[in-house]
């Protein structure tokens, strides 16, 4: 399972600025997800996921926590 981290408010702002997108355009992750429960993230947080990619070695993905 890849590593999940919660972004701080500043990091989140910086990310959205850098990608020039809005929060809702990010891929989603449900707050009922076992990993989200484990790291105590709340709806509205942005999760940074560091994947082990077979092509790039490491790739970073972001997901927005939403409640269903």
């Amino acid at each position: 399972m890849p590593k999940h981290e919660i972004l701080s408010e500043e990091e989140k702002k910086e990310l959205l600025e850098r990608l020039k997108i809005q929060e809702k355009q990010l891929p989603k992750i449900l707050d009922s997800d076992p990993v989200i429960k484990k790291i105590n993230a709340k709806a509205g947080d942005v999760i940074k996921i560091t994947r082990n990619s077979p092509t790039a070695g490491k790739s970073i993905y972001y997901r927005l926590v939403i409640s269903k």
Binding site: M1, P2, H4, I29, L30, D33, P34, V35, I36, I49, R51, Y61, R63
Partner: peptide, 11 residues
């Protein structure tokens, strides 16, 4: 997906 979450399911 139920046990390990969406990222693990993707993998």
């Amino acid at each position: 997906y139920d046990v390990l979450g969406i990222e693990a399911a993707r993998n």
